[in-house]
Amino acid sequence: MNLTLHVWRQKGPQDKGKLETYQVKGVSEDQSFLEMLDDLNEDLIKGGKDPVAFDHDCREGICGMCSQVINGKAHGGQERTTVCQLHMRSFNDGDEIFIEPWRARAFPIQKDLIVDRNALEVVMQSGGYTSCHTGGVADGNAILIPKPDADYAMDAAECIGCGACVASCPNSSAMLYTSAKVAQLAVLPQGKGEAKARVKNMTEAMLDEGFGNCTNHYECQEACPKGINVKFIAKLNREYMKSMV
């Protein structure tokens, strides 16, 4: 199939970017979206132009590196799918495709489709852990965690930290990301001791890093390639209220 791409090009963080139009020809429907971009880049290099810079790594939907808004939807809008797992069979010959980076104040654009997601790191560093020491911990079976709790924690822990929740949120809030970690650790006995400090510190860090507030649009849940549910945000809210009393 042949496609028309409108790709966000921006030389550096301080530069003004704009959408550039490219034609790609002979795309196979078995190719992944990123392989289609690889093709585009090969053409650009051969034509003496600068290839499009984009983040990607594992190409199997788990590392969370890839980050593109495709036709107005983070990761392209296919259910539970990252850009790297999106295949060209979802598109038709002659389609026009708009490709933009994550946009949020907390995610400054570095080049083309690459953004700086360090703000997510800071949120995690502010409390996304249990303060256990290496060694000197109890036997794994000394703490019983019934299956429903373990499953709940696992549902939350599936977050890959890609930032699609932020990119899709009208407020650029990182609440889904933050809540996934808060909820995972709040439901587990190991995490309960620090639950109060954790929810306070992590939500505070989220705001300090320039993310917006959650106003319950739930766009994040739709965009999340791992299907993280907004019930974890509700859980975070509960945990926060508990921390106030």
Binding site: C132, G140, D149
Partner: peptide, 22 residues
Amino acid sequence: NNIIDQCVAQGVPFARDYAGYL
């Protein structure tokens, strides 16, 4: 064996049975 204990302490959600055992 220590690794499993360490990961559990960190909150790694290993699969469990209904009684709560790994």
